[in-house]
């Protein structure tokens, strides 16, 4: 069974995945384009999502070796950085973090990831709007009748593309703030 979904929130993604597994599936594959492949299973499984920055080949091997020793199977995740998807049969330790310090560090990694994309978004935003508005056609707002509508409809797709940095800023700004809230909850309290 394949399901398509898109998430901008790692915790919502983890929750959704576990809801699917609760229905008697195990996750077989996750592609980068939001295609999740499931298989029916009599065993119950649990999925946990970790976030790691770029790891050297050796570090990535060691990282995977430790998780695999604990019974976790790596479903997806790049060595170059990003979400690491881990799945395990239910029973015993079903968490990947067992103390506050490591949970806090996890939110810290999420924070720095969101932060850099937020900065990239702000930079693109600056490049695109430093000397213009969203619509580039000169005199667009002075046009009349069908000419105005034609020009507006023609340009709108481009405007949507050009507003991509705004979406980036909102998206990564939100995820940065969420990770920061969680981080300060776990940080020495």
């Amino acid at each position: 069974m394949k399901k398509i979904n898109m998430f901008f929130d790692i915790e919502k993604e983890e929750k959704w995945l576990n809801e699917q597994l609760e229905k008697g599936y195990r996750c077989k594959n996750i592609s980068g384009f939001g295609v999740y492949t499931f298989q029916e299973s009599n065993e119950r499984y649990v999925v946990r999502l970790d976030y790691q920055d770029y790891l050297t080949k050796k570090k990535f091997q060691e990282y995977k070796a430790i998780y695999e020793d604990f019974g976790w199977a790596h479903i997806a995740g790049w060595r170059s950085g990003g979400i690491q998807y881990w799945q395990k049969q239910k029973g015993g330790q079903s968490e990947i973090f067992s103390d506050r310090q490591s949970k806090g560090n996890y939110y810290k990694r999420l924070m720095s990831y969101s932060f850099w994309f937020l900065m990239l978004g702000l930079f693109l935003y600056y490049l695109m709007y430093k000397d213009s508005g969203l619509y580039l056609t000169e005199g667009l707002w002075d046009m009349e009748g069908t000419l105005f509508w034609k020009a507006l409809i023609f340009e709108t797709p481009f405007v949507l593309l050009r507003s991509f940095p705004i979406f980036m800023v909102i998206l990564f700004g939100t995820s940065f703030y969420k990770a920061y809230r969680k981080y300060s909850m776990y940080k020495d309290s």
Binding site: R48, D50, E62, Y63, I66, Y67, D69, F70, W72, W86, Q93, E95, I96, F97, S98, D99, Q101, S102, N105, Y106
Partner: peptide, 22 residues
Amino acid sequence: MQKIEKMSNSTVILAAGTLYGA
């Protein structure tokens, strides 16, 4: 992890990510 489980009389059972990070 196994040794710590014994040392702590099963009160501290480390998870994979915690052990890796530590």
